[in-house]
Simulated assay, not measured.
Amino acid sequence: MRAMPLPHADKRLLASIHDVGPGSERQVDQLAGILEARLGGPRFAMLVVPDHWGQHPLRENTAFQTRLRAWSDSGIEMFVHGWFHKDTATHSGTAQFKAKHMTAGEGEFLGLDETTALQRMRDGKALIEDVIGRETAGFIAPAWLYGDGAHAALKALGFPMAEDHWKVWNPVTGAVLAKGPVITWASRSGARTASSLAFAALARQALPFSRTVRIAVHPGDVTKSSLLASIGTTLDRFAATHQPSKYADLQ
């Protein structure tokens, strides 16, 4: 059997688990186990939702707070991932297209004004940092969707890092820290699942030469064996050529 190449020191693999909260603990546990096994340890990030859809408040769940702190203590980076993760705004134009076709009512920060966005970001940051006992790594909007108000709030609050579908950047300086599409999967319909599997397969062929590769998994991914198989194959493919890293290593 031909030996796999060692990861290149200048190529980074960034992996993350989205939608982390009390309501997704079992799924997050499963995904964390998969990532740890494939990446050689807790070399990934978690994106924490303070109160997913208003039904799973982190503030009231001390047992999950303990788990979150333990994950953080192990070295897993923690990002603020919105507040509710639910989009309740009314959109028009380009934003309306994004809200309808790029997410299922979960682009919470796409239509928020700066004041509301700033308050939710500040509250989420304070809560998560109080739970884990250290600073959060940054802010990533639900569904990777930001409106003008969210962009302004990000800069005003001074988050060191943010991410969308195509890049990682510093909201304060505007510096782009990494470029390229994020590889992710979809479970909410057969068509979207098939599309995400096809994109992951294409990415395994097209992105090995990229300096930074990003992989994002969601709790819903554990509901389909085809998605879990694709996630495992994709992690293995890039862990062979890219060094599993922290987002903080980009700075």
Rank of each mutant, 00 (worst) to 15 (best):
D123T: 10
L235M: 13
A186G: 10
G174I: 14
F238C: 01
A70I: 09
D87Y: 09
Q30K: 12
G149V: 04
K125H: 04
F44G: 04
L202E: 04
T234H: 14
A206G: 07
E25P: 05
R69D: 07
R12E: 03
R38I: 06
G149M: 06
H218I: 02
E135I: 01
T116N: 08
W144P: 02
V49D: 03
A141W: 10
R120Q: 07
M78R: 02
A191F: 15
Q96C: 05
A153E: 08
T173Q: 06
L58H: 04
R237G: 01
V28Q: 03
G23R: 07
V168A: 04
L157C: 05
A178E: 14
R192L: 12
A95R: 12
I128C: 01
F109P: 09
Q251V: 13
F64V: 06
P171Q: 11
K155F: 03
P244A: 00
F199V: 11
R43M: 07
A178H: 05
F209N: 10
A200R: 15
Q65Y: 11
W166Y: 13
D236I: 06
W166P: 00
R59D: 10
E135L: 06
D29P: 00
V80A: 02
I17H: 10
E36D: 11
H8R: 12
N170G: 05
T173N: 13
T116F: 14
T233A: 04
K86D: 00
A32T: 11
T115V: 07
A153P: 07
A198G: 02
E36Q: 05
T233W: 04
W144H: 12
L202K: 10
W53T: 03
W83M: 05
F44I: 11
L13E: 07
I17D: 06
R59C: 11
F79Y: 05
A152H: 00
A137G: 09
L6F: 14
A150P: 12
H101W: 14
A45I: 08
V217W: 12
K224P: 15
F109V: 04
R12M: 15
A3D: 15
T62E: 13
S245E: 03
P50Y: 05
F199A: 04
F109L: 09
Q251S: 12
G133N: 15
D148F: 06
G149Q: 06
G174M: 11
D148V: 05
P244D: 13
F97Q: 15
P208H: 14
G133H: 14
S196W: 00
R134T: 11
A239R: 02
R43H: 13
L118H: 10
T193A: 02
M46A: 08
A206L: 11
I231G: 08
V49S: 02
K179N: 14
R188M: 12
L58F: 04
I132Y: 07
D19A: 07
V213K: 00
A239K: 01
G147F: 09
F97T: 12
A126Y: 11
G54N: 10
G220R: 09
Q243S: 10
D19G: 09
H218C: 02
T94V: 03
P42K: 05
F97N: 12
M4P: 10
Y146D: 04
P50M: 05
S196M: 01
I34D: 00
S210N: 09
L154N: 12
K246S: 15
P181A: 02
S245I: 03
